[in-house]
Design a protein around this nucleic acid. Structure first.
Lengths: 361, 361
DNA sequence: TTGTAGGCGTTATCAA
DNA sequence: TTGATAACGCCTACAA
């Protein structure tokens, strides 16, 4: 298997020792000069010049492996997603985050190592050591809700620098960054309230992911502020639906309207099921937003609905989220502790919300 | 600056020595066991098991830098793109290529390191050492046309395994993989010819990128076969347009038709300008493909036109391109030389081409 | 101001 | 079958 071959391709590459010989100084001096002389040690301008000249003549470039070995760090940040890093389907959720991760990592001088849950090195889904590969990097970012708790906990306990993207409180000691769904959802409700809406219904998926829970929390909090505690505690203010959302029908929408509801809010999820169902039901009922009722989306619309009228709601700053994760990780690496975990979502005015019908805004 | 802090954050990262202690063997033995025992040295099944267990317990992972320093390889493949690997403008995205790169790399047991071109560490655009970081990996893939020649040449001259994705002949000795635009473009012309078209016009951008040149070359070659050398040499058979393509107007289309042209071919580019212009002009002229004329696209339609009727043309197998690049790189690593550099593009029947009007196919 | 020496974590060559 | 020992190229006290 080409065991013997012309491997060791390092061949003709000059090392500091050769530069030293050519310049007539010691290898240490070369390291000092070429290393930028961090410790502010004084050296002859002469020596400096000779070394530089010799290095240029030989075309010297430092060996990154050696450099990193000596420095006890490799300037590598890991990115681990339990599913493939480049899934064909999930493209929409992770890609924008990676954009931010890459930018911030580059800005801070780190390169990225991509680990996939289903990679080789004997790292299958069930493998209890699957996560260990990330130790190769100085620290690692974790994406997705399916990262196994126990393995992650082991890394954290060992003091390995890790940051989870997405709120993750259950795992004690694990740093995370997440979108501030609570505040953003509350803001949407406040805007609707400012338009005159009092009875508002939230359509969410039947799932206890933090992302869903946080949205409901923000929704209820703001509702309590705007419409009083009774409105917020009303169980019918929040509807849990399944995927597909068979219960969100034109009839259901009409019923609600008849009961005085004037605005509907849906959460964004991977599938976009809640928003899609609401959208479809409203259209099928022959109703139109914002004239007959107001609609808002707690997140961004799925790609196939993006062409439609932009929904009122908020945008998750995914790139910013990635960048924030990198910042938190590098803060850990340099000994400083946590930076801000919550990233604010910007309100998106959109055009699916307006004053309730029969009322002048 | 965090210069002094509790750096040396290698902290808990276990090394072979600790595994050795735990397993009650020498560090050498650990290396032997964990290294896969390449030299076929015999060792007790007992020892082996103990070492493996200890390594797993400690979560041992070899240090890539040390590995590379000592053995000149670390099972890491680099991916370097001079611009961001994850650009915001989706159309420029390398994403589909990376999908293939990741899959093939995983299949061959390599992890991926993403080197971002715009990284500091003193690695700005002008920095002559920006590319040097890649030497940490066993070999590297290069993406995009803006990889600086001189630095890349240095790597190649030093014998560093590198593969460029996209044809790159100018750089002597640099291996590359690319889509076979020549053959694919020729095939499209042949199909059109088989339908009965004789006068065909190619709309391309005014750019001398290999991708454009190759398409024209294939176009002219096939045209010579099908319609004779006169047709192929006719300067009006190829139109160079700029971005935006103001010259591709409804009037221009009609003119051409009046002169006997029955089919138009556009090249795919980053911007999609040529195809978009053609598309728009034809529609504005009140014409329709394939009834009034035939259209073909040398590539895939831009995202915003993907919903329209699928154009006749070919698909660039981007994932396959990535996989081919990895194969070529690993071939270099194992001493074997070049594998096939050209990746075939599949013909896409689409539905914008048919027999010329007034003729029975 | 410069040089000497030791170590970073692995692999590889020999002895034992 | 296993264990010293010497690289690999660079960094960094510390000594001169």
């Amino acid at each position: 298997m080409a065991e013997k071959g012309p491997s060791r391709q390092r061949r003709g590459r000059p090392r500091q020792a050769e530069v030293a010989r050519l310049a007539g100084v010691s290898q240490t001096t070369v390291s000092l000069v070429l290393g930028g002389n961090k410790q502010g040690i004084a050296l002859h301008e002469d020596t400096r010049a000779r070394v530089l000249a010799a290095a240029r003549e030989l075309g010297y470039v430092p060996d990154p492996a050696a450099r990193r070995l000596a420095a006890a760090r490799n300037n590598l940040l890991g990115v681990f997603s339990f599913t493939a890093t480049f899934p064909t389907a999930v493209e929409h959720s992770y890609y924008p985050i990676l954009v931010g991760v890459e930018q911030e990592a580059a800005a801070q001088g780190y390169d990225l190592v991509l680990f996939t849950g289903s990679s080789p090195g004997g790292a299958q889904a069930g493998d209890p050591g699957a996560l260990n590969r990330v130790r190769l990097a100085d620290g690692c970012l974790f994406l997705g809700r399916h990262v196994p708790d126990d393995q992650l906990r082991k890394l954290v306990v060992d003091g390995y620098p890790a940051v989870h993207i997405g709120r993750r409180d259950e795992l004690e000691g694990l740093a995370w960054v997440g979108a501030d769904y609570v505040a953003a959802s509350a803001e949407v409700v406040r805007r609707l309230s400012a338009l005159g809406h009092r009875r508002i219904v939230l359509v969410r998926e039947d799932d206890d992911a933090p992302a869903s829970t946080d949205r409901e929390h923000g929704f209820r909090t703001a509702l309590a502020e705007c419409a009083g505690p009774r409105a917020a505690d009303d169980p019918s203010a929040v509807v849990r639906t399944t995927h597909p959302a068979d219960d969100i029908t034109p009839g259901w929408v009409r019923d609600r309207l008849a009961q005085g509801v004037t605005a509907f809010v849906a959460e964004e999820t991977d599938s976009g099921a809640a928003w899609r169902a609401l959208h479809t039901a409203v259209a099928a009922a022959g109703l139109d937003a914002p004239d007959d009722l107001s609609l808002a989306l707690l997140g961004s619309p799925p790609a196939d609905l993006a062409a439609a009228r932009p929904p009122t709601g908020f945008d998750i700053p995914r790139a910013e989220l990635g960048a924030a994760a990198v910042r938190m990780l590098t803060a850990q690496l340099s000994g400083e502790e946590h930076t801000e975990p919550l990233v604010a979502c910007g309100f998106r005015a959109g055009s699916t919300a307006g004053p309730p019908p029969g009322r002048t805004g």
